[in-house]
Structure formats: C-alpha cells, structure tokens
Design a protein around this nucleic acid. Sequence first.
DNA 1: ACCTGAACACCGTTCAAGT
DNA 2: ACCTGAACACCGTTCAAGT
Lengths: 232, 232
Amino acid sequence: MTLRPRTPISRRERPAKPALTREGIVATAVAVMRAQGLEKVTMRRLAQELDTGPASLYVYVANTAELHGAVLDELLGEVDLDPAEGRGDWRERLAGVLTSYMHVLFEHPGLARSALTARPSGEHYLRLLERLLALLAKGGVPPVQAAWGVDVLLQFATATAAEHSTREQSPEAEDEWDALTRAVHGVSEKTHPHLHALAGSLLAGSPEDRMSWCFRMLINGISHTPTTGTGS
Amino acid sequence: MTLRPRTPISRRERPAKPALTREGIVATAVAVMRAQGLEKVTMRRLAQELDTGPASLYVYVANTAELHGAVLDELLGEVDLDPAEGRGDWRERLAGVLTSYMHVLFEHPGLARSALTARPSGEHYLRLLERLLALLAKGGVPPVQAAWGVDVLLQFATATAAEHSTREQSPEAEDEWDALTRAVHGVSEKTHPHLHALAGSLLAGSPEDRMSWCFRMLINGISHTPTTGTGS
DNA sequence: ACCTGAACACCGTTCAAGT
DNA sequence: ACCTGAACACCGTTCAAGT
C-alpha cells in the first residue's frame, strides 16, 4: 500500500490504453495538458501515462519541443473562425477571430509561451492563416501588406496571451507587475519627464479597451502602410 | 586527477571571488550568461561558480525567474538610446532605438524569451521607456496613444527577437521553419485560396525590409488611431 | 541572521541490449 | 524494426541543522 506521488489523470479524460503511435502519444499529451497544463507534458510523464519508459517515445517524437508543437496545432482546432461577437465589419470579424485565438491560448497556460517560438505548420494553423488573409482581402488590404500584416497580428495576439497567462499563473509574475507600477509612478520628473507625465496612461485602460485599440491600431497600420516607399 | 565535466568560466570573465551578496550573485549571473547563455544561469550552476550550495542563493534571490529578470535589466543597459543609424526623422530614431534593443536581445539567446514574460522594472528599462516616449512626443503623437503604443512597440521588438534567436540557436527550430515554408507552398488552391495566392509574399522580403515595414506600420497605426471612437 | 548539506521530486536524452 | 532498462547529466526548491 504505497502512496503514489503523482495521480495519473482520470480514465475519463485519458483515451483508454492509447496505442504507442505518434497519434496516441499526441492524444495523451493533449489530455495531460488539459488536465494539468503544458508544464506537465514531459517525456517522462507521458511515458508513465503510457506505461512505458521515456526512451520509447523517441521512436515517434523527435524531442519535447516537437511534441509541444503538435499539441499546439491540435488546440488551434478550437479557435472559432467565425465568432458571433465578430459580426459586421471585417475589422470586427478579424478582431473576433484573434480574440478567440487568444482565449484558446490563455485557457492553457504555457501554450502561449511555446507558441511564440514554435512556428506551427499544422492544418489548424493553416486554416487560421487562411481565414485571417480572407478577412484582410475582404477589407481591400493590398496583398503584400496583408501577408506581412497577418504575421504581426498573430505575433501580437500570441505575445499578449503569453504575458497574460504568465501573469495569471504565478503569483510572482503578479508581484513583478506591481513592481513595474510602483517603479513607473515613483520615477523622478527631472530625469524621466515623459514617463512621469504619462505614468497614469501607461498602465490605465481596461484590458478590453486596450485590446480594442491595439487591434484598430494594427489594422490601420497594415491597411495604410505601403510595402515600399516612405509611407505616412 | 578527475575530469571536470563542466568547465568554470575563465577568470577574466568572472569577477574575482564575488561576495555572496545580491550584487555579487547578479554579476556572476551576467558573466555566466555572457559566456554560456541564459540557459546556464541556474541556481545550481551559479552556486558552483560561487563555491557554495544552491540553498545559499535563496537568501538573496527569490527564485530563478527573479534572477533572470535582474540579468535582463543589467543587459538593457547596453541598449543604444541614440544610435547613429537613427539620425534624422523621429521615426527613424525610434526604429533605431528599437533595433538596438533587439540586437542586445538576440546577442544573448534565451534572454529575449525571458523578456517576453519577465516585465522588467529596473532602471535601464525605465530609461528605455523614457526615451521611446520622448521620441513619440517629438513626433507629436497624442500622449495616451504614445503610452499604449510604446507597449506594443516593445512587445513587437521583444517577440521578434525571441523568434529570431530561437531560430538561430537550435537546428530543429530551423527545420520547423522549413516545414512551415513547405506547408504554405503545398496548400491547395481550392481549400486555401488566399493562402495559396499569397504563399510567396508571406515568406518573402529581406528581414530588413520586413522590419522596416513593421516599424513604419506600427508608427503609422499608433499616430493615427485615437484611443476612443472608431478611428480610420 | 546567515549559511549549508542533504534530500525530495523531478527533468531530457542517449545507448547498448533485448524482443 | 521497435522497444526499453539503465545511466548520464542535469534541474528548482525546501528544511532542519549548524555557525
């Protein structure tokens, strides 16, 4: 009668006896992530879940980063490409899709952070790209601007989700934010005049208002900045 | 005559016998990072470098994240706030400062990734904020737009550096990029018409041209998007 | 108060050996 | 070909015990 230090995830959330195949491994990885977060999606933990040793997984998966990438694309399947809040204007639809993307990312802490460096290329990611490009085309955004812009839009959404989910997750990250707030407000008017004057604005605004402004700002920039010349 | 598996960093790059104080620990952390990268800046590695046990460091440093944050602010001191390439237009100066910031980040792989979630609040970070706000003010950007915009500008630069340095660092990240290239070009015209049409543009452009466009795009967006109303 | 040995609970990845 | 035991080389963090 030994205590098991790590409870395996419940039978309901785990695919029953998953085969030792790439699909089985990824499915188990997704289940572990849903139950315990991406941090627990480790080779050793997965091997335990699959009743084998960690070395066995390396037959199907190159390394941990690749595994996380597969989990990410799987989750990208949950992004709502035509969200109800985004009806009407193509700009609102665009913001709606990106908001859905961010929601998916910060429901799963850790995923956003990995998304920033993982460069996914799975089917769900391609579907998302296609949808965003379609909306930009509908808005009459010139093709090259749309192509380059979509990258920035996704990068913005991903980075925002990463910051947000890190802050939600750990109490120390919250402390860091407090430290920044105090630092910005405590700055001297002599040495940092602009910062001093804008301290309030820097940290002000509801997340919704700021996000809404950011989307409008990015869409304006993308729409009105030619890919050659000095722009205005 | 035992082989030491880990070579300590050379005497020249390490502050001689650093005292066991917060400053000494951070200085050693910076030295280790310069020599071997942020990944090696671990509690255990640092303790070894300081001839003590890892537990001793916890008297001065709350955890690894805080330590990495301290290293980050230290490095931010290297950012050139008035780079020669950025003479002339305030937009060019702004882009110049951000480019210098990115250079500092991707000279030290791993630092950019930590900067994305670390929310620094040290003196060097505040100096950078002040400089960016001053340039936006010089450009006549309305205060609140400048305050919110500076956040996005730094987030963009940080995320770009993180992507870039991850790709530089590991060969697998390079493979991932190839996979994306193939995926985008291999997409069906029927199911992904926009993606198919823009496959070339999506991945085209020199890094310099894209970066230059991104900065112009962001500055345009920030300058021309009011913080309230529908904008244009 | 400051410091530390030792422990607890983990990691990724490789490789020789088995089936 | 596929699978795995065991090992190598690490992690962060805590805590009781020392000085």
